[in-house]
Structures are given as structure tokens and as C-alpha cells.
Simulated scan of single mutants.
Amino acid sequence: MNITVFCSANDLDERYTVPAREFARTLGERGHTLVWGGSDAGLMGVVADEAKAAGAKLVGIMVELLAHKAYQGADELVSTADLAERKAQLLARADALVVLVGGVGTLDEVTEVLELKKHGLHDKPVVLLDTDGFYDGLRTQLRRMEQEGFLPRPLDELVRFAPDGATALRYAEEALDGEVSASA
């Protein structure tokens, strides 16, 4: 399975890097492919290193503006002209999407894939790895949107929140297994 990961390119505290490493190691051990922003910087580099060490194939989708931060050990590295094209490629290559901790760029990526899913433009599983309660505020806001009628479908159909990396992968795998069973 191709798992697109959105996350920070910043160097972060161990409370964020340790769970990210565990997630990436599990991803590789389960034979999945990591599709990510293609950077060797910060958490992106940590996730790529760990996934590769655990046997994962790495597909980086890199924006030309950040080519100087390209991960040199990727099995495939795709260059895009801009961030919009990069987001489109990250979604197109995904069987499932897992969101680790990140800043404004990560928030932009996750809100775009949720908006597209809300409109039925994809139905790929989206899972947020809620390390140390990082996404508690977003979960609260999304629940309010659901309760007040801003979401045309139930929140748990749009996104799942996972307390750890193994659970995040399980949610993605179960969602995809359900699609295979439903179409069989």
C-alpha cells in the first residue's frame, strides 16, 4: 500500500520524533511504500530514514523550490513546479494518508484532502496521528463543524484520529480492506 505522509520538515523534540520513528518503522515492516514530501530535513528526514531502514520503498514528491533539501536515498524522486502540484501528486499516489505533527504546510495539506474528500473527489482513508494531543484543537473544531451542520458527512467518515503509529496504520489498512471486501 502507498501511504502518503504529511509532516513537518522542522527538527523537533523527541516527544514527536520517537512516535514518528515507530510509525515509519512499522510502515516499512508491513511492506508499505512511504510517499512523502521528499525532504531530508527535520521530521520528514527522520521518517524517511526509519522507513527505509525497515525495508520500505520511498517515493518523494519534491517541489522545485526545495530541491536543495531532497532526500538522496529515495527510490523515486518526483519534482513538481509548485506546492499545488505537489499536493495533487501526493494525493494521487496515495492509497491512504497519514498526518503526523506539522505546521501550517501540514495543516494546509490535511485540510485540502479533507475538503476534496468531503466533496467526494476521493475516498482514501485519512488518519491523523495525534501525538501528545497535538491535534486536539483540530479535532474539537472539526467536531463543532459536524455538530453545527458544516460537514455533509459524518466526521469519522472523513478522518480518524489515532493515538499511536500502529493504530494509525491499522485504521488505514482496515479502511482499505473494507473497500476490497465491498467491491469483491
Rank of each mutant, 00 (worst) to 15 (best):
V101S: 06
E157R: 11
L142I: 07
V59C: 02
L128K: 06
T167M: 06
K118A: 08
R153K: 15
R160G: 00
L114N: 06
A94T: 11
A54M: 06
A70G: 14
Q141N: 06
L128T: 02
D177F: 06
P154H: 10
G73V: 07
A48F: 06
T140E: 13
R144G: 12
A53H: 09
D177A: 14
E112G: 12
L128S: 05
S181R: 15
F161H: 07
M145D: 03
A74Y: 03
K117V: 13
E173Q: 07
D130R: 01
K87H: 00
K69L: 12
F134Q: 08
E50D: 09
M62D: 02
L176E: 07
A74F: 08
V127I: 15
A88I: 10
D108T: 13
V78F: 09
R86I: 11
T131I: 13
A175E: 10
P154A: 11
A84I: 11
H119E: 13
V126S: 04
V180Y: 02
T106Q: 05
A84D: 15
G149F: 07
R144T: 13
A51H: 02
T140I: 10
G137V: 10
D156E: 13
L121T: 13
A166V: 14
D177R: 11
F134R: 07
L100E: 01
E115P: 01
L142Y: 02
L116S: 04
T140A: 04
L65K: 05
K57D: 06
A92S: 11
R93F: 09
L155Q: 03
T80G: 00
Q141D: 09
P125M: 09
Q72R: 15
A175N: 06
L169W: 04
L97Y: 04
Q89N: 10
A53W: 10
A162I: 12
L151G: 08
G60V: 02
L58I: 15
Y71M: 00
L176V: 13
V113G: 01
Q147G: 13
V101L: 09
E148P: 03
D123F: 05
K87L: 05
H68V: 08
L142W: 02
G165E: 06
D156H: 10
G55F: 09
E85I: 09
E146R: 11
A182G: 14
T131G: 00
F134S: 03
L116N: 03
V104S: 08
E109D: 07
L138T: 05
E64Q: 09
D49S: 05
P125G: 11
T140P: 01
A56I: 12
Y171H: 10
K118C: 11
R93Q: 10
A96R: 02
K117D: 11
G178P: 02
G102Y: 01
L121S: 14
A172P: 03
E109N: 01
E76P: 14
E148A: 15
G60L: 01
M145K: 07
A162C: 14
V63D: 00
E115A: 13
L158Q: 07
